Simulated assay, not measured.
Amino acid sequence: MLNWILVDEIIYNGLKEDINNFDITTDILIDKESKSLAHMLAKEEGVIAGLNVAQRVFEILDKDVNVKINVKEGDKVSKGTVIAQIEGSTKAILNGERLALNLIQRMSGIATISRKYRDIVKDIPVRIVDTRKTTPGLRILEKYAVRVGGCYNHRYNLSEAVLIKDNHIKAIGGIKKAIDKIKNNLSHTIKVEVEVESIEGLKEAIEAGADIVMLDNMNLEDMRKAVEIGRGKVILEASGGITIEELVETAKTGVDVISVGALTHSVKALDISLIIGKIIHF
């Protein structure tokens, strides 16, 4: 599900950034009565996410533009697939083309890599989750794309959940002190996650009452030890630069969750183009 109030705000900001006062090229060249039929084409194989967002771009520019979507969110498409057709004002199509493509390309790239991660560990009982390493201003869309691809979301922002990280622990003077202070000032409905770098830190976090423990940059041997100690007591999350090549072995340690910043922070956009194929009226 998407919060369309927030999505519309992203689109309006994107249009203001791209068009500013007016589209000098389109406004001079294209008559306001001109209508066209265009199609959106996948130029490589991948998982589609964000068609509904791209559609909204054109609807905001002109409510009479008709977007026919040919595939479903989360569908894997092949090169050459026409994923949507756009019919209506030529000016609106050209005004919105770049923003619509930027968003759907980015979101589909995230969905594609998320599907790849999911499929690699589909037979192992582990969740692959994203992080807050998202493009500023686009987090709601990028985390949505992760879910479309089949992975899961970590906390949305700093207000949503507690995660006591190494710098918090250093600043306050220890894991137990941090957890005690958090729990004394926190609603009972919110879980407490703590980042640790050692087995000793894990034991301290468990004893202090953590609900979730993030194993930061631990090697596989220590992760296995952590699972033996923490199983049934806390949720265990592996984190820290885990590559796709390391995914299976990390999952086999028995951790519950693996967080992967690469799902959003270093994604290649899926190659999608928009082509005007027919002038309906000029």
Rank of each mutant, 00 (worst) to 15 (best):
V192N: 07
K191C: 03
S198Q: 05
V213M: 00
I179Y: 09
I199A: 02
K203V: 14
E195Q: 12
E200Y: 10
I212D: 00
K203C: 12
I179H: 10
V196C: 03
V213L: 01
G201D: 03
V196E: 03
I212A: 00
E195C: 07
S187H: 09
A205S: 12
A208H: 09
D180H: 11
K191A: 09
I182A: 15
G201Q: 04
K203F: 08
I179F: 08
N184C: 13
L202Q: 03
L202I: 04
E197G: 05
M214N: 03
I190M: 11
H188I: 14
A208T: 11
V213W: 00
D180A: 07
H188A: 13
I199T: 08
A205R: 05
N184A: 15
S187Y: 03
G201A: 07
D211K: 04
M214E: 08
I182L: 06
V194G: 01
I182R: 03
S187D: 13
S187E: 06
V192T: 14
I182G: 01
S187C: 04
I182K: 05
V194W: 00
M214H: 04
I182C: 14
M214F: 03
I190Y: 03
A210G: 04
V213P: 01
E193K: 06
A205M: 07
T189V: 13
N184K: 15
L186V: 13
K191E: 06
L202N: 01
V194A: 02
A205H: 08
D211Q: 06
V196A: 02
H188E: 13
A210I: 11
K181S: 14
I190T: 15
D211C: 04
I179R: 09
D180R: 13
G201T: 09
G209T: 13
N184R: 14
I190V: 15
I212R: 00
M214G: 04
V192R: 06
V194P: 02
V213S: 00
V194I: 10
A205E: 02
I182Y: 14
K183V: 08
K191R: 15
V192H: 05
A210N: 04
D180W: 06
E200K: 14
I212G: 00
K181T: 15
I212Y: 00
D180I: 09
I182S: 13
I212C: 00
K203H: 07
K181L: 15
L202F: 06
G201M: 08
A208F: 09
L186Y: 10
N184F: 06
E207T: 12
K181W: 13
A208P: 11
N184I: 02
V194L: 00
E200L: 08
N185I: 11
K181C: 12
V196T: 12
M214W: 03
M214S: 01
K203D: 09
E193H: 04
V194S: 01
I179L: 10
S187I: 08
I206F: 06
I182H: 02
E195A: 07
I190W: 00
V194R: 03
E195F: 09
K183S: 14
G201W: 10
I179Q: 10
L202K: 02
E200H: 04
I206C: 05
V196Q: 02
G209E: 11
K183T: 09
K191M: 08
N185C: 07
E204D: 12
A210F: 05
V192P: 01
G201R: 09
I199D: 05
I199H: 04
K203R: 15
E200N: 12
S198G: 02
A210C: 06
H188N: 14
A210K: 05
L186D: 11
E207W: 06
E195K: 10
